[in-house]
Nucleic acid binder design. Structure first.
Lengths: 219, 219, 219, 219
DNA sequence: TATGAATGAGATTTCATTCAT
DNA sequence: CATGAATGAAATCTCATTCAT
């Protein structure tokens, strides 16, 4: 049994190794520059070996996206108490977002893979990709907004689902853009500040009459 | 002299012809699918000729961006009265944005070329590309915000310049994403609605204590 | 000894299993589509294991050919009475050929592997591959023709051996072609009709002055 | 005009050069060994250049087949007088076949490309590929057989069209097989003898009661 | 004995760019 | 000024075969 376990672990490790290097390349040069040869070289594997672990280049990208989106969504979900008001939950979500970004800029940026694979499919119309890796995030967001409208901390003006899509769209669009930059051109601190200010503006824009003013500041 | 003039005019016409066809392709298929052969074919020129008018493929894209950004910035500037309050000017700017989009979705989308060429260089840090095609737009925006802070219609919380960059970044990020889709996958009406709702949220988020509530609705 | 026997039996079984699955694939998709991975998958073995039983892909194909040719030659030999005249023996041989094809289209088709492995080596010149899997068939054929020439039922015009080679070449060429088609594209009934008509033409062409006209019809 | 002509001629020459080298390779090593790199190397062109002249590897093969089939069919058609009897026409056709083979073994062998591209599609069932490059040959053959049945020089036993298909199938199957051999393994003289004897057997097998015995010998 | 894993070598195809005419 | 032609470099993917365990 020990052998099977080790094998399985090693297999998982190789898989991770490939993803790791692919991510590295994306983060260094943007995903337009990702190519199988370089992934292979960095992982010290042959190109052919990559195809043992992933069916195609797209499969690698999908795996990266999946991992990133899950990590992030889980991270966020853990940080949102159901007891708090709608606007406070949103604030918590965005705080988590920034915190996650701080902890792991990388995972964060990689959610941008989404728009590379499916440019624009997920958030621009109502029905598309209901099962995409980001769908759960949008659903979570919509749920919170609905709660906020109910408790008066979020303005009742908009359809929760559409608003959720807007919010995720905006955030991921910025991420997407950041992820396309070579690492040298990115300034993580500045990205963080921009996002932070953007989120504050959005918070104020969303706030309903019962929102606690204290919940409209991010940090 | 007549001959030189004609020559020069013809040269300009060829240049436009190339840009025209390149734009058409981008709008039809997204810019990842742009290739020199197709531009040449559509313009009924040889690939080699393209290089007489543009140094490289990137130069073509830059020219397209330049044109689109200028068109748009001029369009906007004409519609903003210096007499109105800051928040009203922003509202006017965004109304113009949407109107411009309505009138010419296409030119608009082409501002997305920016992020294809310089992913993230313009808006994510403070100093970069001060002369980029969108710089004037940001400057205009910052000027308006400054005015709004002065007249109390915009909340004084933020640095005008940074806020301007955020606003332009958000708008162009969405455009960028839309521009990567093939025409068939785009839903112009939905894009317009999303942008409109986003702008309203931002308007409310930016509004200062002296803002006229009527100026916070977009249409 | 019991153990050694079992081992040996098991080894033979594995070998057969591999061949079985390789044949299945060839018959389904034509031999150009045969690959080791699929053989391994179907046999529920690893690719590496295939190499324990066969030196190479070619060795597998050779084994298939060998088996098919033997099966067929035996089938034919059993159905030819030494008492009958030369032309009647040929007729019997071809009847058996068609019958064998009817009973087991598949084994039959696999003789086509020959030309995949040794395209043209066996029948196009006089001396080559005297021990090839089809050599016995040609020998049998030549022997019959010799008998026919002796008893006047086959025209004396040609060298028996060369005529035998021609006959086998023609038959296997058609089989070869059929075996390259994926199963879906084959029409066994039409193949049978074509072969049958071809054989009748050949029978008439071979017949000597003493041939019984009744022996020139195939069915 | 002189320039345009020259260019056009040069273009045609390059095209021919590519085909020439591709044919060379096929004839030397069989078509399974044909690859774009080698064609390019021999033609002293880059791989990319090949794609200027042919859309794909298959297009090259198709062009070879087309050329070979046309050359051959024209060659044959010129040598058949409409005045002669059916069986004499068939004899003439086969004589031409062998003569053509003598003059240009190459063209001849290359008709085998057909079965490489469409293994088995053309002659095994009645309706398929009615416009294939070999269709005209079959039609010609069927027409002659029809004529022979009418004038009594060919036995009335079979459907002319089916018989034509059988004849072409047999001939091309042998060619096909020969074309798959590396040049070193082919013995043109022996192929010629085999074909010649085969054709004589077929001639006798097809002959009707009014056939002139002299027309049943090939040389 | 059996195998999971790895790989070298090669296949076809694409595309921005250059150059001789 | 215009272009047909050419190409180098790269991209994705396949497959028979080997090797360490």
């Amino acid at each position: 049994m020990g052998i099977a376990e080790r094998k399985s672990r090693e297999k998982e490790e190789r898989r991770s190794l490939i993803l790791l290097n692919a991510k590295e390349i994306i983060l260094e040069k943007g995903f337009d520059s990702l190519n199988m040869q370089e992934v292979a070289d960095r992982a010290e594997l042959s190109k052919a070996t990559l195809y043992l672990y992933f069916e195609s280049k797209e499969a690698i990208l999908l795996a990266i996206l999946d991992e990133a989106a899950s990590t992030f969504t889980n991270f966020v979900r853990e940080r949102i108490s159901e007891a708090s008001s709608g606007i406070e939950s949103i604030r918590a979500l965005w705080t988590a977002y920034l915190e996650c970004y701080g902890e792991s800029e990388e995972i964060f940026l990689l959610t941008g893979v989404e728009s590379y694979l499916n440019p624009g499919t997920f958030a621009l119309d109502a029905e598309s990709s209901p099962d995409g890796p980001l769908a759960r995030l949008i659903a979570l967001f919509a749920e919170i907004i609905g709660r906020g409208i109910a408790d008066g901390t979020i303005a009742a003006s908009a359809d929760p689902f559409r608003t959720a899509r807007i919010a995720v769209l905006v955030a991921t669009s910025i991420i997407d853009r950041a992820a396309r930059m070579p690492r040298a051109a990115r300034d993580p601190k500045m990205i963080r500040i921009l996002l932070s200010e953007l989120f504050e503006i959005l918070l104020r824009g969303l706030a309903g009459k019962d929102a606690d003013p204290a919940s409209l500041k991010l940090s």
